[in-house]
């Protein structure tokens, strides 16, 4: 600390109390900062302990059986885990190519900046619309809109197991599509950031060697931005797996596994949304077990995403 004349002239008592205050303040903020990490631990711990009775009773068979009977107190979440994975997969299948396409569109110079900025903003807005609003829109607009398409798929391609059931309105494919809409802005935004971060010099070098725009994109820009894009996709996957309301409202919430994406199903999060409020006893514990699985799944995906994104941002 600098010792200016005015400071040495100050009463020492005051500077001492202010030093204590200073220390205390740093400690206080430190406690809260560490508290943020503690919250994460608390979630894992509390959900884990509440799941313990179900873990002890069902063990790993919880993951491999699909019977969910409140009356018999037998619970297995295979249907829901399957539903979570399948809907997320459909969502990625649609959102990844379109999202990267959007990102390329917005990172190249197709649009003048005055138009580009609002478009970027609009696409980010997609991420801000509450999920329950997507669900409402899904029920009254998307489901009726997709039904003829589902029927067409079933009548013409019903021999493929994927389309082997007649669509009844809600279903896994509707959930997948609505999820794809919801994660698209994440993929687009993060991919665009990583594409824009590729140094302009590299692009010029490729053009200077006589590469066309798309040769430059595919052979230089996309490889350089690759890890950032993958990180963004992982984040989006985590979001898709945890997304609750919109999925709950359009998936049909039936406890059955079918290879057909036109059939109804449920996900871990829709199970929690439907049953928690009225649950008791071992059912609560089983729901906590399901929540723990979802927590674990998204944790792995998010940590991977975080590591990939970090590695990437350090490199450029």
């Amino acid at each position: 600390m600098a010792t200016s004349p005015s400071q040495t002239a100050m009463p020492t008592e005051r500077s001492q109390s202010s030093r204590v205050l200073d220390k205390a303040f740093v400690w206080l903020t430190g406690a809260f900062a560490i508290g943020v990490g503690f919250v994460l631990l608390a979630i894992a711990f509390r959900v884990g302990t509440d799941a313990l009775p179900a873990i002890q009773k069902f063990g790993l068979s919880f993951l491999t059986t699909s019977r969910w009977s409140v009356n018999d107190e037998v619970f297995g979440a295979l249907t829901q885990i399957y539903g979570t994975l399948v809907t997320s997969f459909i969502a990625l299948l649609i959102a990844v190519p379109i999202g990267i396409g959007v990102a390329l569109f917005l990172s190249e110079d197709y649009l003048p900046p005055r138009i580009k900025q609002p478009v970027v903003f609009l696409i980010e807005l997609l991420a801000a619309i509450p999920s329950v609003v997507y669900g409402l829109w899904g029920i009254f607009v998307l489901i009726p809109l997709l039904k003829p398409f589902g029927i067409w798929l079933n009548t013409n391609f019903g021999w493929i197991p994927l389309f082997s059931t007649a669509p009844s309105g809600p279903g896994i494919y509707v959930a997948g599509i609505i999820l794809s809409i919801m994660i698209l802005p994440i993929i687009a935004a993060i991919s665009r950031d990583s594409l824009v971060a590729v140094p302009a010099e590299i692009r010029q070098a490729a053009y200077g060697l006589g590469a066309t725009r798309w040769e430059t994109i595919f052979q230089v820009i996309l490889p350089a931005a690759f890890s950032g894009i993958v990180g963004g996709i992982m984040l989006a996957l985590g979001r898709a797996m945890g997304e609750t309301m919109a999925v709950t409202m359009v998936i049909g919430n039936s406890n059955s596994i079918s290879p057909s994406i036109l059939s109804q199903g449920s996900t871990v999060s829709s199970l929690l949304a439907n049953q928690f409020a009225e649950a008791g006893g071992l059912q609560v514990s089983s729901l906590m077990y399901a929540a723990l699985i979802l927590f674990g799944l998204t944790l792995v995906v998010n940590v991977l995403a975080e590591i990939i994104v970090r590695r990437f941002s350090l490199k450029l």
Binding site: E201, I202, Q204, A205, L209, G210, A224
Partner: peptide, 16 residues
């Protein structure tokens, strides 16, 4: 044109 007329830039810019 750029295939016949190469260019070396001020800042070295190798591809990653």
């Amino acid at each position: 044109v750029r295939r016949q007329i190469g260019m070396v830039f001020q800042k070295p810019n190798p591809f990653p």
